[in-house]
């Protein structure tokens, strides 16, 4: 496309079928270069800590303290990974984190789908008020609900359990909002046509509506999953037993070891912790971006 700079239709044959739209102003070479440089800077800025984390996890502890700024070790070693895997019940933490994330994701998706379905396709008194009230919950800071939630979970006897971590987050205002936006893009006549065919409400949802909002569902699932996976403070409050730790809490174990922090092990554990969310995001990146673009919300 670099040929097109300066002329909006350069390179397009005269008789080509062109949709009528205002010609977009192209960037000049200088602007494009400057912008590219800026993006590169932001990318490096964002990626640097991660690259450093992976690099450090492969260095010996001596190398880390001697040459902390180098990104990649001269001689890489897997000793930290071996250490993490054998010295702490890391597999156990992965399983814990996975379960919490799975339960929360499934529950949030389920409640969001049902609520958004009602808010989009059913007419009832107080619908808009109720909807915005639910959306508002997405903006209540965690610190405001932390203590009531903690007391509730404690009274229910769920401290130090996966369920205790999951319970307060089984529904999500933002999820309801995003799915309602997705359902709104589905013409009402799809729903009505199915109704005229005597299809029940849950089957309409399953056979007609959900397949049409699948990208949004996938994006939400991954967002919910990653958020829960990375969550630190709430599980930290609830989980008392070491055996019930999730990965983010387990990480702090390496900072408090006697004789200072074991940086190598810490970085190896961090790398392992971020592996799954990174993979999930990479797989669904396009759908996540599309969902936010189409909902009018910036990610």
């Amino acid at each position: 496309m670099s040929k097109a700079i300066g002329s909006p239709n350069a390179g397009i044959p005269e008789n080509a079928f062109i949709l009528e739209r205002k010609p977009k102003r192209r960037f000049t070479m200088f602007e494009a270069g400057a912008l590219g440089f800026l993006f590169l800077l932001v990318a490096v800025w964002t990626a640097f800590p991660m690259l450093w984390m992976i690099g450090a996890s492969l260095k010996t502890n001596v190398a880390i303290s001697n040459d902390p700024l180098s990104l990649w070790p001269a001689r890489s070693t897997l000793e930290h990974y071996r250490y993490v895997w054998t010295q702490v019940p890391f597999a156990r933490y992965i399983v814990n984190t996975f379960w919490v994330s799975l339960i929360v994701t499934a529950a949030k998706l389920g409640t969001s789908v049902l609520a958004a379905y009602a808010f989009s396709f059913y007419r009832f008194r107080g619908r808009e008020v109720l909807f915005y009230a639910l959306l508002l919950t997405a903006f209540v800071p965690f610190t405001a609900t932390m203590i009531p939630n903690y007391l509730l979970v404690a009274r229910l006897g769920l401290l130090s359990s996966v369920l205790g971590v999951a319970l307060p987050q089984l529904a999500d205002g933002l999820g309801i909002f995003l799915l309602r936006q997705a359902f709104r893009s589905v013409p009402l006549s799809f729903y009505e046509a199915a109704r005229m065919e005597r299809v029940g409400p849950l089957r309409i949802l399953w056979h007609v509506l959900l397949p049409l909002v699948r990208p949004s569902l996938a994006a939400l699932a991954i967002l919910f999953f990653i958020n829960t996976w990375n969550e630190y403070f709430w599980p930290f409050l609830i989980l008392k037993e070491k055996s019930s730790y999730t990965l983010p809490i387990a990480l702090q174990m390496f900072t408090n070891l006697e004789g200072g922090t074991n940086w190598g092990a810490m970085m190896a554990a961090s790398t392992l912790t971020s592996l799954l969310p990174l993979l999930a995001y990479a797989l669904a990146q396009r759908q996540i971006i599309e969902t936010f673009l189409h909902s009018g919300v910036k990610g």
């Binding site: 013409p187 006549s189 799809f190 009505e192 046509a193 007609v208 049409l212």
Partner: peptide
Amino acid sequence: FQNYALYP
């Protein structure tokens, strides 16, 4: 329906 409402 006017827009046919064919499930895409």
